[in-house]
Design a protein around this nucleic acid. Sequence first.
DNA 1: TACACTTACTTACGAAAAGTAACTAATATT
DNA 2: AATATTAGTTACTTTTCGTAAGTAAGTGTA
Lengths: 102, 102
Amino acid sequence: MKETTICPRLSKAMELLGKRWTTLILYQLLDGSQRFNEIESALPVSGRLLSERLKELEKEGLVERKVFTDVPVRVEYSLTDKGRALEGAIREVEKWSQTWIN
Amino acid sequence: MKETTICPRLSKAMELLGKRWTTLILYQLLDGSQRFNEIESALPVSGRLLSERLKELEKEGLVERKVFTDVPVRVEYSLTDKGRALEGAIREVEKWSQTWIN
DNA sequence: TACACTTACTTACGAAAAGTAACTAATATT
DNA sequence: AATATTAGTTACTTTTCGTAAGTAAGTGTA
């Protein structure tokens, strides 16, 4: 990779948030804890990618995964403090989109 | 594409902003008008992708392109009002990254 | 007992996007 | 004539994405 002048923290943040679907998944979870299928229904993302993204977000500590051993199994995803701390940024994008898109 | 419950404006916004490099390019331009090579040097993005992204951003009205017929040619990119309106959102992400990354 | 049904994934595979490096046009300098 | 500069473009390989089908663990139904 090239040498750059950009802040490594912002760079790393964008590496995560700049991936397709990541921000919309977080946006969806701002409404509260949700099951896999709920998120999948709310967004035009496939199970394959949703699974992949949720794993990344869990690994980076933005999302928490809870398994309930009901039948069939129930899995709930929610934001951690680190994830919820992005609410301000996400709301700003939401506001921008209402003003400038379409 | 699937049916979703998410707001189409936010969805469209994220289709643009969620692409790799887009937000970092805008962040870079918050510093003011910059030439192609300046942006390329500041970010770990290749000329091929930078060119593609700048075209998209110009088409969507977030970035303006000005050609100066110096020798060799000079091209300057700057934010439009629509692009600059994203400053709040970008600064929020920047703040978040300073607090939570690393 | 056998078979369908549910959720939360995983796998396989072709298509699209991204990374890398070499190349180009226009012109000015050496 | 050869070299250098900027702002790209082209060709090619690798990575990521999208779609559809398959899986595991139980539970309900015939």
